[in-house]
Design a protein around this nucleic acid. Structure first.
Lengths: 192, 192
DNA sequence: ACCTGAACACCGTTCAAGT
DNA sequence: ACCTGAACACCGTTCAAGT
């Protein structure tokens, strides 16, 4: 990568982060290029699709989320680990508004630039779920898809201004639905 | 309303229904006008916003949903009535893909053309919830907003191709979370 | 290698001009 | 009253031409 290209790449990513923070995941690509003082075609050259841009924008955080699952897997009781991680996941998909739709789309599209990272998060969560199920503290009739779906649904709810005020409460309700043992206690314990 | 206007109105609505069935709630207004052999400005004259169009498109079904809550309120056990109606609601928001986002938006925007119908559905559901709560068969720490939010979230899940295959299962999971008594049995009973 | 302006085919909004 | 074409300001895609 040539020096000028490298510089453009980094700058575009920084500007994109700004614009996406303001306008959410369906910010205009043209707007990002404009704000970066660069031709639109240059932005598209570095990030040929919106997914490619978000892959670069989210990779670090997605990896961190996957990594966190691995750590929780060894250090915490299975039910607490599951709920703690689930909470992190919901917070993550809300990092930028509208990002949850992008991830849900990528989840079903192996050719998407975001697919690999989503799949990694998916299976990291699945492992935590299986561990809690083995212990009997998580619903037996759930799988990794369901966990990812519920995480996404809670993220979507947080994106809608009409539902956002109750998002925390809805998180508890669904976390309780996932767990089987004295549900409300477990969720509270895992909060800390 | 002049005869030619009336004819345009009805025709536009019929064509809009077709196009929206094919392309979902964010179908192009221009496309609808084109398919109706009418100027774009004519479509916009009858339906100044997308919300106005959907208000006309959904009014009948929204009213039916509200009406159904009233009927269930008198004829069925509170818990069964709640779950049955909840199921209808989820099915409704999936009637056209993407319509759930429109409704969630209208829910927080009193100036939207869709607001009134959404509010009616909201409070119809709230009454069913209160009745079940009074009986002790629904979670006490929920309100009408939560019910509407969960209904919307399930509708959204059904819209995402990656989650749709598990939508039925997720419905059961959440319906169980709403009810308090031998949950899995109640949900099954209400299915009939 | 890398960048860019311009042409293209879209979108919804607005309004002066027509019947 | 009602309709319409056209101008406008946007969008993402594509590519020939430049350094």
């Amino acid at each position: 990568m040539r020096a000028d290209a490298r510089k453009n790449y980094d700058h575009l990513l920084a500007v994109a982060r700004e614009v996406v923070t303001e306008h959410g995941a369906d910010a205009s690509m043209r707007d990002i290029a404009r704000r970066a003082d660069v031709g639109l075609a240059t932005l598209l050259r570095h990030f040929p699709t919106r997914e490619a841009l978000f892959e670069a924008l989210l990779r670090e955080n997605l990896d961190a989320l996957t990594q966190q699952a691995v750590e929780l897997e060894t250090s915490n009781p299975p039910d607490e680990a599951l709920v703690s991680w689930f909470r992190e996941g919901v917070a993550f998909v809300q990092s930028y508004s509208g990002v949850v739709a992008l991830m849900a789309g990528a989840h079903a599209a192996p050719e998407s630039a975001l697919y690999a990272s989503c799949a990694a998060v998916h299976s990291a969560g699945e492992r935590l779920l299986l561990r809690a199920q083995a212990e009997g503290t998580a619903r037996a009739d759930m799988n990794g898809d369901d966990l990812f779906a519920l995480m996404s649904a809670l993220g979507w709810l947080g994106d809608q201004s009409s539902f956002a005020p109750r998002a925390d409460h809805l998180f508890h309700l669904i976390a309780n639905a996932i767990l089987t043992n004295q549900p409300s206690n477990d969720v509270k314990k895992a909060k800390r």
